[in-house]
Amino acid sequence: MELEQDLMVSERKKKPFRWHVLVFLAPAVIVYTMIMILPLAETLRFSFFQRDTITQAISFVGLENYIKLFFDPYWVEPFLNSLWNNCYFFLIHMLVQNPIGILIAALLSMVHLPGKKLYRIAIFMPTLLSFVVVGFVWKLMLSPLWGVSKGLMKSVGVGSWYLPFLGKEETALTTLSLISVWQFIGIPMMLIYAALLSIPDEVIEAAECDGVTGISQFFKIKLVLILPTIGIISILTFVGNFNAFDLIYTTQGPLAGPNFSTDLLGTILYRTFYGQQLQPGDPNMGAAIATVMFFIILTGVAIYLFFIQRKLTRYEM
């Protein structure tokens, strides 16, 4: 006993500074801090400054940029428009992408044929494409110049429903949301498929013994067990959607046409930062918008972590 204590004391005394821990950690921490955390903080700080239009000197203006953003009609209208569009964009993903992802995953876990692998590979493929490709492919397909979508719709008897979907204010945002769903459906499919596979056989067998099979088995048992995965997918979708920019930029250009009907927070940030046809770029206002986006995303993540994730019971499997 005494010897043991002696050993412990001497060990504590002898322990030299472990340089290797520092060496292992340093590169990652330095790069991450320098390129990600400090610029983020810098962006927050930058949003409290503004360049004087006459003297060109940059000075501290307090909350002026935010007051402009929230109360000046010149700023607040496009900002609220893009915020609303962004919420709608997210809603479509939640209502279309995730349920279809769950459906595909459930069907995949049901099928017992070799074709299953091919389905997975095919349905996941669009996720790998760049937004430039996705944007232009759909733009070309939906273009009234190229009769592909009109021809296809005619062949299933709904030719009269054809509209230049991306060119009309009423349909452009929905169309873009669905294109984005088309692109990213593979992610919920894969994650939920993995979650379904990890449900142990004993649980399913027990359910079958109790006569719970088929569709009711899916809703009463499997769906409950994969709720944590659905939660993760929802928050991933949220962060991705409120940060979206590329798809709108490649299909509709930085002005997010027609008439700003597809403007998202990402595109308004880009325009403010870089300027557009009639207006020079304003990095300080851009920083203010980025800060607002930061807090929107942070709020979403916090709601997920503190309310949703806690409520979801994790079953040890």
């Binding site: 320098m34 390129i35 962060v239 851009g286 980025a290 995303i297 942070l298 993540v301």
Partner: peptide
């Protein structure tokens, strides 16, 4: 601290990154 970056898109720091 390192996990923060999983949830927060680096894009939001663009203004600072460009200055850097």
């Amino acid at each position: 601290y390192m996990a923060l970056g999983i949830m927060i898109p680096i894009r939001l720091g663009t203004v600072g990154i460009l200055r850097l």
